[in-house]
Amino acid sequence: MIFNRVLKDKIAGKTMLFLTILACSSLLLIFAGLIFKSLPVIEKSSFSELLFSSKWHPLKGEFGMLPFISSTLWVTGVSIIIAVPLCILSAIYLSEYAHKRILQLIFPIIDILAGIPSVIFGVWGLILIVPIFGYSILSGGIVLAVMIVPVVIHVMIEVIKTVPSELRDASLSLGATKWQTIKFVVVKKALPGIIAGIVLGLSRAFGETMAVLMVVGNVVKIPHSVMDAGYPLPALIANNYGEMMSIPMYDSALMLSALILFIIIVVFNVFSRLILIRIERNVGYNS
């Protein structure tokens, strides 16, 4: 009887360990798979050609991805430029200045909006944004910005709320104004969390497929202004992966674009993690 229980405990432990290792290795597995599938096109053309050429002619075997890479960067950049200041300012306003009731009312709404699927944001873009700005990088950026705002604000408000009120009191009691206190103490204390929120929004925006695809125009060329149409990497995969079998190397090229997305996300996450650790060390988290 006792043996039975202990045995169960042990077996469960081993199973869990196995699952854990499996989950951890899934990352490596995906990485390996993506590399394996994109090797053919890498071997055929050079890296520099793939990454820095804008000649995209799958039928001729030319797979220059610069238009897609630059579109991705443009759209993500525009969305971050729009969303981050809005989020920081509103998060501070809602948690520091606004009446508590307003926060209590708005916070759940923001929370719920954070769960709205990206397709819906794409539909909204079609209805309201495309008629104004056309199928363009800017439309894509706006749609993405609005999509990530609830997520980012949610994180920021949560973090600002955890700054102890005694810390604000300490600064106020030295004769600092409310704004100085926010600027020098609250924001500083909340900085790691604010950055974490931005990182979260950035990775969301970066890999978003459907919402962008619906409004960005999907034209293969390097955008030169925000009013140009673009064709980000995820849209490229989504639009073409279903019917790539007939053209040689096409599937490999598309897998390479998936690999690029994958690598950027991983590097980005690891880097931001390191930055966060540094900041936390410098700010000196004790409480």
């Binding site: 890999g207 995820p234 989504a238 992966y241 997305l261 996300i265 996450n269």
Partner: peptide, 12 residues
């Protein structure tokens, strides 16, 4: 990191 990986990558 898995959270951050775009779902299109999983799909493909």
């Amino acid at each position: 990191i898995l959270w951050g990986i775009p779902s299109i990558v999983y799909g493909a």
